[in-house]
Design a protein around this nucleic acid. Structure first.
Lengths: 250, 250
DNA sequence: TCATGTGAATCCATTCACAGCT
DNA sequence: AGCTGTGAATGGATTCACATGA
């Protein structure tokens, strides 16, 4: 992620709701969406208040962390009772900028991109994919999920027309950097990158990366470590990665 | 991720290469795969040594961080020269447990799962998807990328037979927890979860989560903040999320 | 009495700056 | 002379524990 000038100078950190902006710790920002999801479930289930303990459990964090996170929003709990679910949903949606739906452009409709274009989960969470692009002439003109694939060279025009806020890169690694350049030149300042490579972008542009192989490799490390410990305990047995099934089930 | 007993008690932290295991900081573990990818590129390009400065640039981090990370492996650089690329590749592959290919089971071959099953990137990075599962009888029996979709009820048997090391969940949220239970009961201790929900698993099982909507929501926050700052600077103009194109291009 | 909100303490990660080796 | 490896310093994030207020 690009380095954003820290401490915007606004005097009071915290709760102001207007155009002035609470500057939240990055770690908090990364958890707010999870709280939001948990709260939505609670709301649908008919709860109208929730304790920090219960919400924390639903979001998979501990309650002290949750309370500190929410306190950064100048939070709206009542002592002895808990948080008002609807109020908190609104508050989090506000700071995340989800009060209006944002337009997303997806570049690269190969294997993964095709799936992303058809993924229903986006629509329900504040986003709409409004444009698809690819460089492959065999894909240009095809329709996916009611949306036509356009050639990447039209990206700049379309980005302005459709007020694209976020660009998603689902191309092979070799194409990712030039695509990022095009996105940036079109004025897009937020990029989600699925290609396994590092993007270089100017200051002020935010890039988040999702790399599936990396996630597996991190898991592999822990598998390796666990097997290694087991191996030490059992003096070298069970090096084939198959854990004994006994005693694991919940 | 499950809480793993901290400080395994082994006396010397750091470099031992045998069955004893260096316990790396989580943040370091999360970056090693990126270093590995960068190193592979360098190796293919014919470099046989690389400085911390150059490797850090290729991996998108700063060089002090890189050196500290590598020092945890008891690293093999030479002062005044740099790191031996091939040696370092081997070293990182070793600690990540990538010396043998790990078998991955994918559960849920809907929209996203189908794409993951066909994703070529896994094979080249130490993993092979060796089994596909679904609960939908219309999908069971179909062949994707040369692999037949089996019914989830056969997961336990297959997991043992094929020595599955990692389970990937690509089902709707409602099915994810029961699927996780099945995976755990089959002895699988590493799970990659694409479903938008929190999984509860016993100690010793590692879960990593990838949630596409959450990534977009984090970007949305930064968009919102940037727009808010711009709005303050320009006294309320440009609230529609379209940044001015001038002066942004690289 | 109960659960939030928050100072204080602790833990972890990043960065600095330089000693030490080639 | 140049670059790694690492103590020391800094900065963030998590956790503790309790004062505060409904």
């Amino acid at each position: 992620m690009s380095q954003l000038s820290p401490g915007t100078g606004s005097g009071s950190p915290g709760a102001s709701v207007g155009p002035d902006f609470p500057d939240l710790p990055e770690a908090t920002v990364a958890r707010l969406p999870e709280y939001l999801r948990a709260l939505s479930n609670l709301a649908e289930a008919g709860n109208d208040t929730v304790s920090s303990e219960a919400l924390a459990a639903a979001a998979g964090v501990n309650s002290a962390k949750l309370r500190k996170d929410l306190s950064h929003l100048g939070s709206y709990g009542t002592r002895g009772v808990g948080y008002d679910v609807a109020l908190l949903v609104g508050q989090i949606e506000h700071v995340l900028g989800l009060t209006h739906r944002r337009a997303v452009a997806l570049v690269g409709v190969g294997n993964l991109g095709h799936a992303l274009a058809g993924y229903a989960g986006f629509g329900s969470r504040g986003f709409r994919i409004t444009a698809l692009f690819d460089a492959d002439p065999r894909l240009v003109g095809k329709t996916i999920n009611g949306l036509m694939v356009r050639h990447i060279e039209h990206l700049a025009d379309v980005a302005v027309q459709e007020a694209i806020a976020i660009g998603v890169i689902a191309t092979p690694a070799s194409a990712a950097q030039p695509v990022a350049d095009v996105l940036v030149r079109a004025g897009i300042t937020s990029i989600l990158n699925f290609a396994p490579c590092v993007l270089s972008v100017p200051d002020g542009v935010d890039v988040r990366k999702v790399d599936l192989a990396i996630e597996l490799q991190i898991l592999s490390f822990h598998e390796h470590r666990k097997a290694s410990l087991t191996g030490v305990a059992l003096t070298g047995v069970a090096q084939n990665g198959v854990a004994p099934v006994e005693g694991v089930g919940g």
